[in-house]
Design a protein around this nucleic acid. Sequence first.
DNA 1: ATACTTGCAAATGATTTGCCAGTGT
DNA 2: ACACTGGCAAATCATTTGCAAGTAT
Lengths: 164, 164
Amino acid sequence: MTIAPNAERLPVADLGQAMQVLRDRGMRISTSRRMVLEALFGSDQPLPAEQLARGLGLELTSVYRNLEVLERLGLVRHVHLGHSAGLYALVARDEHEYLYCEHCGSVRALAPEELDPVRERIHELLGHDVRFTHFALAGTCAECADRADRADRAPARSAGHHHP
Amino acid sequence: MTIAPNAERLPVADLGQAMQVLRDRGMRISTSRRMVLEALFGSDQPLPAEQLARGLGLELTSVYRNLEVLERLGLVRHVHLGHSAGLYALVARDEHEYLYCEHCGSVRALAPEELDPVRERIHELLGHDVRFTHFALAGTCAECADRADRADRAPARSAGHHHP
DNA sequence: ATACTTGCAAATGATTTGCCAGTGT
DNA sequence: ACACTGGCAAATCATTTGCAAGTAT
């Protein structure tokens, strides 16, 4: 229940440092665990557990268990785009927040500062500290909004649906 | 794949109007469907399907199927607070967006306008139209932020974790 | 030697699907 | 009558758990 004791903002820039964190916390460095870590250090985007398991030839269960440990130590995190499976990444490699378009499925990664003004606005309006790191911001991207707009003002083809 | 054809912003203030929408769309008004609708009109907060089923003595499957129909017609919507089950409500009765505290689980309902400035900010910064209606905004409420703050500056009890 | 880890099977929770009998319109 | 619905069992998807056997330290 205690919230991630330490390791929160340590750099952990490479595999060696990650393994050191593991040792310090008394966790072992098994082959599968190292493989998961290497795969994450080798990817520039968050990956689903299933893809890690398939790609590394590991049992899915084991991947989940390792990700859980790494997440508990603050080395790994995961995001959800809509309802789909969690996507896992190294905290050190992916501090992005995501914009997800519910219409076309497009995903846009944002540097954390990009949403700072938004977070501040919410904090001053409501007193809450929000995080967009666990669930992506969902909505409609500019392109889809345009498309909908165009379709809307086009001559109604089927049963009419007009703005009043 | 087409997005909710019409009924999007009709009032639908009572059971009668909801039933009319169903008729207009060629859907039947079975006993279970009416019961689900009545239960939703009778509640001032979003409910999980399971609670509807239990409360009405209906098969869970049937409740889900009815909610799906009602949602497709734009009469009902659902929200998720974190990972938990969807909470269903009449669009006409609940246009709130939610703030969810991941630490204490508290939920705060917001009138849609309360987040309008936030939505505008995001739109001008990033061009996206975001909705906070499907996934609640997650983060830390003012109380929990305070508590964490206090604990943080209190004399470290166990293994020390200090700000650098 | 002693935990921590794995593999594999089985359980979980939320939601969906198949299928056939039942019923609104 | 006919298409839409309900009941019930079984499937799905992502993730977790139990337990015996394996292995890092």
